[in-house]
Structures are given as C-alpha cells and as structure tokens.
C-alpha cells in the first residue's frame, strides 16, 4: 500500500470555507435584495410594496422562490437543449469566483491574490456569454435581438470600465484588492473617489450597463423585446438569471466600494459593516435609478459610450499616468 501524506494547505481550507460562506452570502443577499428592490420600488411609486407575507413582507421572496422552484421548466421546440440549460448555470456560477478576492474586512476574504482585480474582470465576461447563449439557444427572435444587444453593449462598456479600473490600479500600483483598500484612508476625503471622481462616475455608469440595470437594461427591455434574452425561460431557469442579476449588482457595488470608497474602512469602527453599508448605499442608488429613469435607446447607449466614456476614460488614464 502506498502511504500518501495528505497535506491540506491552510490556503485551501480558507478557500473552501470562503466559497461556502460566499454561497450563503450571495443567496441571502439575493433574497434580501429582491425584497429590498420591491420595497424601494413600492415606496418610490407611493405604494407599500409587499407586506402580506411575513412581517413587512419579508417572506415574499421566499414565497416567490418556492413558486419559481415549483414551476415546470419549459423549453421551446427547436431550441438547443444543451446550450439552453447551460446558459442560466453559466450566468450564476462565475459569481462565486467573482466574490473570492473581495476583502469584506481586514481579514475577511477568501482568496488573497495579487491579481484579484484581474480575476474579477476576467470572470465577469462569462455573464455576457450566458446572455448570448440564452438568447441564441432559445430559438426566439426576441431572444436573439436581446442577445445581440447584450453583446454589443457589454463589449462596448467593458472598455471604459477597464480604463476606469486601470486608473485606480495605476495609482495604487497593485491589482490586489486588499492593497487598494489599504491604500486609502478611513475618511471620505482619503478615498479614491475624492481623487478620481471621473473614474468613479465612468465605473458606476459602466457597471449599470454591464449588469443590465436601467436605464441601460436594453438586453431585456421588456417594452421593446418582451423580455429579451430570457423570454423563453420559466421557473428556476429564469430564477437563476434573476439571482445572477442581483449577485452581479453586489459584485459591482463591492468592487466600487473597494476601488473608490475605501472598502471596509470607515471613520469609526472600521470593519465589514462599513463595507456592507457602502455596498448597500450603491445598490440603493442603482434601484433608485431603475425606478426613476426611462430607458435609453440602443444607439444612444453606444454613442454615449464611444463618444464620451471611452475618450474621457482615456484622458483620465493619461492624466493619472502623468501624475503618478
């Protein structure tokens, strides 16, 4: 018999624990966010929002989740079954990877990686891929149009996003998210947003576009494309896209918090609560936009990107490089 010494490195333990914790975090957050979104929408629209199921309607999301899980999964005739079911899974799985390098607190991270930022950017691309696959494989023309929109939108908006992120990376000289956090001080004027307001603006606008949130929610655009790429999905197929959208919202807000808002640091009692507060503030802003603004038109969206965001992002990067 071969005696193998099983060595479990501490890093691996941390990773596994981290992933489990993240799964719980993402799930819990998605449930809270769906509830929050409805409450925010309700109050913006001068109605109470959900309030029947549980106290303050807190169990509404659980009830909806049960409903979604209980629903039959249907697939249109002529659809490509393999890709059709691959798409929602592909939308949701990379989310865990995206969360791994994010430092929620001083020691609260699952993967300390020098290239954490690059990791997030690399895996964010899978989201678009899932949208494309969903739209293409569902054998639906609206889905196809939604997928085409998703592609051109995300390809376009990835560039200014990268430019904005690079400006911060240049300033800090690192892709390590923990290092970027620690490069900023606890007070708001020490945060990167004070130094790089333009980069923050570009990042946030692009983040809205990348997560397909209004006013840039063109791939689904229900008044134009019925439901865009997920027109044909039922039950949890749709549910996974829905979860992924909220998870992605947390991701982009977390990255914005780390890059621009000083991460988990706050003027008093630095810690994960500061991180969560900042993330939720950004998410609330995203919801506020969604329930206030009309949707932009597709060519306007692309013009905004190519004619404003990319030149501005490049100029911002140049100035940053010159100063650094």
């Amino acid at each position: 018999m071969l005696q193998t010494e099983i060595i479990v490195p501490a890093e691996l333990v941390r990773l596994v624990l981290g992933i489990v914790a993240l799964a719980a975090f993402v799930g819990a957050n998605a449930i809270v966010l769906v509830w929050l979104e409805r409450k925010v929408a309700g109050h913006i629209q001068r109605r109470p929002g959900p309030f029947e199921v549980g106290p303050y309607g807190l169990l509404q999301t659980a009830a909806d989740a049960a409903k979604l899980i209980g629903k039959q999964l249907t697939m249109p005739a002529g659809a490509d079954a393999f890709l059709f079911w691959l798409a929602p899974i592909l939308a949701f799985l990379p989310v865990f990877v995206l969360f791994m390098p994010i430092p929620f607190g001083e020691n609260l991270y699952s993967l300390d990686m020098d290239l954490g930022l690059v990791l997030i950017l690399a895996y964010a691309g899978f989201g678009v891929l899932s949208l494309c696959l969903a739209g293409w494989s569902s054998h639906n023309k609206w889905g196809l149009l939604g997928a085409a929109r998703a592609v051109s939108q995300s390809v376009a908006y990835e560039i200014p996003l990268l430019l904005a992120v690079l400006a911060i990376a240049f300033m800090t000289g690192s892709f390590n998210l923990q290092a970027i956090t620690e490069g900023q001080g606890p007070w708001p004027w020490q945060w990167n947003v004070a130094v790089q307001p333009l980069a923050f603006f570009i990042y946030f606008a692009c983040a809205l576009a990348e997560t397909n949130r209004a006013p840039f929610d063109l791939p689904e655009a229900e008044s134009e494309l019925t439901a865009g790429f997920h027109t044909e999905y039922s039950g949890m197929g749709f549910g996974l896209f829905f979860l992924a959208e909220y998870a992605n919202m947390i991701v982009v807000s977390s990255v914005a918090t780390v890059l621009f808002l000083g991460g988990w640091q706050g003027p008093v009692f630095s810690g994960w609560w500061w991180f969560l507060a900042k993330v939720y503030a950004l998410i609330l802003a995203m919801m506020w936009f969604r329930w206030t603004y009309p949707r932009v038109r597709f060519d306007q969206l692309l013009n905004l990107n190519w004619k404003w965001f990319i030149p501005l992002g490049l100029a911002n990067l140049l100035v940053t490089v010159a100063v650094v």
Binding site: A41, I44, Q45, A214, D217, S223, T292, Y293, R295
Partner: peptide, 16 residues
C-alpha cells in the same frame, strides 16, 4: 407612454 419608454414609476403617480 412613459412605461413604454422604460420608466416604471410615473404610471403609478398618474394612477393616483
């Protein structure tokens, strides 16, 4: 009409 253009809230103000 605003709903067609993608903004959800005004219709509820109108309904009020």
């Amino acid at each position: 009409y605003i709903l067609d253009l993608g903004a959800f809230s005004p219709i509820l103000y109108a309904f009020q």
